[in-house]
């Protein structure tokens, strides 16, 4: 097993990798005292939290295609041990991002949360972010062990496909946040799209290639899968 594979298996390592980006704004704010950041510090924090949420969601979505494409690569296997942790952290960053947004809009204007939300739902740019966060909230809650069992493997898997819907909404939300299209959206989401395409191609081939003799569950040592069984 490679060093990287071993390294990434450790939960503590993943925790650190998740928490560090949240602390990053302290660097330009307090150490570099960058005036372009100090001009509106909270806006910098707001954008940074949203960026981190988006990045973490894109990263966690690459885990499965990586495992399918490189089933023997220990790094891909190590990463897949942390799917839930990274996924829930994307939601957590999104939730802090949204709370910061509310605070950012409220200050001084003081017209109440209701007023801010009312404005938000009239703007596609803002409402897409809110829908995505709601989806991630549902996914985070249903990541509890008890709820996974209650839902059953298949239903759970189908429900969690909503992560792709959330990713698409976030890609739009992020690109609409600036006056011109921000290139970072491409850097974040294009690798994911490419990996998903590669996985799709591989799985299609895998499904069509061994069709020489039809096999049914129970034949020649192929296990019978029950409906409730998880992968």
């Amino acid at each position: 097993m490679s060093f990287l594979g071993k390294f990434l298996r450790a939960k503590a390592v993943i925790w650190i990798l998740i928490i560090l980006p949240g602390l990053w704004p302290a660097w330009p704010l307090f150490y570099r005292q960058d005036p372009s950041v100090l001009a509106d510090p909270l806006k910098f924090v707001l954008l940074h939290l949203g960026f981190t949420a988006s990045l973490l969601l894109a990263i966690v979505l690459t885990f499965t295609p990586l495992r399918v494409l490189f089933p023997k690569w220990d790094v891909a296997l190590a990463l897949n041990r942390h799917r839930r942790l990274v996924g829930v952290s994307a939601f957590a960053y999104g939730a802090i991002h949204f709370s910061t947004h509310l605070f950012y809009e409220l200050q001084g204007g003081a017209q109440g949360v209701g007023h801010v939300l009312k404005t938000d739902v009239t703007k596609p740019f803002l409402v897409t972010g809110m829908i995505a966060l709601t989806l991630l909230l549902v996914l985070a809650i249903t990541s509890l062990q008890a709820l996974i069992r209650w839902l059953g493997g298949k239903a759970w898997k189908n429900l969690h496909r909503l992560a792709y819907v959330a990713a698409a909404l976030i890609a739009y939300h992020q690109s609409a946040a600036r006056k011109v299209f921000p290139m970072q959206v491409l850097w974040i989401f294009i690798p994911l799209v490419l990996l998903e395409l590669a996985r799709f191609v591989k799985q299609r081939r895998g499904r069509t290639a061994p069709r020489m003799a039809p096999v049914r569950p129970g034949d020649q040592g192929i296990p019978v899968r029950t409906a409730n069984e998880r992968e």
């Binding site: 704010l29 100090l38 001009a39 509106d40 510090p41 909270l42 806006k43 605070f103 950012y104 809009e105 409220l106 200050q107 001084g108 204007g109 404005t119 703007k123 596609p124 740019f125 803002l126 609409a176």
Partner: peptide, 25 residues
Amino acid sequence: VDHPRWSQASERVIGGGGLLGTRQK
């Protein structure tokens, strides 16, 4: 008259009010 993507009713004050900043009508 709002921008289609955000409200123009209030504005952030650049350099106003420390780390949390401030907003005015």
